[in-house]
Simulated scan of single mutants.
Amino acid sequence: MHTIRQDQQWVMHIDTEWAGTTIESILAEKWQLPKKMVHRWRMDKAILLNGQPANWRQPLQPNDRLSVPFFQSGSFGGHPAPPSPSILYEDDHLIVADKPAGMKTHPNEPDEHHTLLNGVCYHVSLKGDVLPVRHVHRLDEGTSGAVLFAKHEAAYAALSRLLEKKEIFRTYYAVVDGHVLKKSGTITKPIGKDRHHPSRRRISQNGQTAVTHFERVAVQDGFSLLRCRLETGRTHQIRVHLASIGHPISGDALYGGSQISKYPLLHAEKLTIPHPFVNDCVTVSAPISESIKKLFLLTFFE
Results as ranks from 00 to 15, higher is better:
166 K>Y: 08
184 S>Q: 15
207 G>R: 03
196 H>V: 03
172 Y>C: 08
226 L>C: 13
182 K>N: 15
207 G>M: 02
248 P>S: 04
233 G>M: 05
249 I>T: 14
178 G>Y: 04
169 F>L: 05
211 V>N: 05
251 G>Q: 02
244 S>Q: 06
202 R>D: 10
215 E>P: 00
183 K>A: 09
194 D>T: 00
169 F>H: 14
249 I>H: 12
252 D>T: 13
237 Q>C: 04
225 L>A: 04
169 F>Y: 08
194 D>P: 02
194 D>S: 06
253 A>L: 10
171 T>W: 02
256 G>C: 00
246 G>N: 13
173 Y>R: 10
172 Y>A: 09
207 G>V: 11
180 V>F: 06
255 Y>P: 03
223 F>Y: 15
165 K>E: 14
214 F>M: 07
240 V>Q: 06
221 D>R: 11
238 I>Q: 06
169 F>R: 11
254 L>D: 08
222 G>C: 08
258 S>A: 13
184 S>A: 15
210 A>L: 00
219 V>W: 09
189 K>D: 10
203 I>N: 06
197 H>Q: 02
189 K>I: 11
222 G>F: 05
183 K>W: 07
179 H>I: 14
257 G>E: 04
192 G>W: 05
251 G>M: 03
238 I>E: 10
238 I>G: 08
180 V>G: 12
251 G>K: 01
171 T>H: 08
224 S>C: 04
242 L>D: 09
166 K>H: 12
212 T>A: 01
257 G>K: 09
216 R>F: 00
196 H>S: 14
192 G>E: 11
209 T>Q: 06
245 I>L: 01
248 P>N: 07
226 L>I: 10
209 T>D: 02
172 Y>D: 14
212 T>W: 01
189 K>S: 12
223 F>G: 13
187 I>L: 09
194 D>A: 00
202 R>G: 08
190 P>F: 04
245 I>C: 00
251 G>T: 15
211 V>K: 06
222 G>Q: 07
196 H>Y: 14
246 G>A: 03
168 I>K: 04
205 Q>S: 12
197 H>G: 00
185 G>N: 07
205 Q>Y: 04
243 A>D: 12
255 Y>T: 06
222 G>I: 02
246 G>C: 04
199 S>H: 14
167 E>M: 13
192 G>V: 09
247 H>I: 01
242 L>F: 07
256 G>I: 06
248 P>M: 01
